[in-house]
Structures are given as C-alpha cells and as structure tokens.
Amino acid sequence: MSNRAIELVDVNKWFGTFHVLKDINLTVGTGEKVVICGPSGSGKSTIVRCINRLEEHQKGVIKLDGVELTNDPKSIALIQGEVGMVFQQFNLFPHLSVLDNLTLGPMKSRGLTRVEATEKARHYLDRVRIPDQADKRPAQLSGGQQQRVAIARSLCMEPKILLFDEPTSALDPEMISEVLDVMVELAQDGMTMVVVTHEMGFARKVADKMVFMDKGEIVEQSSTEDFFGNPRTDRCRTFLSQILRH
C-alpha cells in the first residue's frame, strides 16, 4: 500500500461562488478501497469527478501515480488510460447494443480490432454475469443489469483505478445486491477503488478506509474498523445513526 495511486493535496473547488470542495487531502494506495459517504451535496461526487477530470479543481494538486493532473494532453491520456468510472445513471449508449457499448472504447481509443474487442467484451460480460445479453439494447435490460454492463464497459478499458459515483442509488432495492456482488469481486481481485455510496454493508465488507464528508470538507477519515466502531466526530456519529437505523 506504500504506492500512491491517487493523491489529493489541499484541493479546492468552487461552482461559481459556491465552495464545493474545501482543502481536501486524501491518499489512495494501489489496490486500496476507499468508500466516501456523507449527506447529499457534501461534495462526494465532485471529488470523484475531479479525479478523472470531468470537473476541474481550482486550487491544490491531484496526482495519479505521482503525475499531476493538468489540461495537458499527456495528463488527459494518463487519466483515460488508468481511470474507469461507473455512474449513478449508468450512462450506457442507448443506440448501441450491449456488445457495441463495450467494444467502442477499446476499438476507437485503444485501436483494438473488432475481434479482439469482442473477445474482451465477452470476457467481461461473463465476469459481471450477463453473458447472454450481448445483442440487446440497454433499454431492454433491468437497472441492475444495465449497471453491470456499465461496469463491464469500464473494465474493457482495463483501468488500474475504478471510480464509482453512487452506483446503486438509481436502482430498485432488489437489484442492488447483484451490482454490489460484482463490486465485491472486483475488490477482492485487487482493483484500486474509490466508491461514493451509502451502502454501509458493502463498505464494511470491502473498504480499507472510510471518508466522511459534510459541506465540502472531509470531516473524518479513518480505517473502516475505527470508523464504524469508534467515530470521532458528532456529525459523523449522527450521520451513521441515521443511515444505520433501519
């Protein structure tokens, strides 16, 4: 874990005059799993979106494998080579079949042939346990299946780091576990993961480190054991008691 896959140093970001991220310091080691939780609007998603530069931060430094993120094309290529992302709303391409959703990136940005890309796509569809839906359109699948296709789409790019932005928040309750199961398996295989989620069961099972955010700040950052067993701040205790009540 000594290797630093992701490093955020004093990162600040504003949306207009709204200060979304305040002095964020966070380090994620290679192979480490970090779960970020907190009330909505606390800046969780924004952190994740800054790591793959869907959003730009205005102050501070974000490094991937020791290389600072800038608007330099090299930096963008580094992100696209190393970081995959799974969205809350899946964001599958509705006009393409499941298979074409998976092969598009490898073919167009990695230069794989259709045969190579298809082979890879089938491999990862197997892995997320939907091998027989390859020719369907995303709209013909259930939400849980769609999210697993989205995970497979990211995996086809063979990222070193996978970011998850509330991957189960748009799902019906009965479909949440099929997505979480796939994520647990990925975690066990040693993927570096940053997951924004409210699924505390999942967090307990896979997270090495927990991050609790509120109002744009990291309020608490500790090992999973300490976080659940002995939360240090009141805000964190209150939050945990609220989401763990049921």
Binding site: Q80, V83, F87, S109
Partner: peptide
C-alpha cells in the same frame, strides 16, 4: 442529449470528434 453521454464517452477514452461521431 444528456451530458452523461459525453462524460461516459470521455471516460472510455473517446476524443471530442469520436464522441460526436459515435455517441
């Protein structure tokens, strides 16, 4: 077309022109 579409395209390494053309 929702912004999520071009964001997803970006995360699988498509350039701006490729995003337009294929997505």
């Amino acid at each position: 077309i929702s912004k999520g579409q071009s964001e997803a395209a970006q995360t699988i390494g498509l350039s701006y022109m490729q995003t337009m053309q294929y997505v």
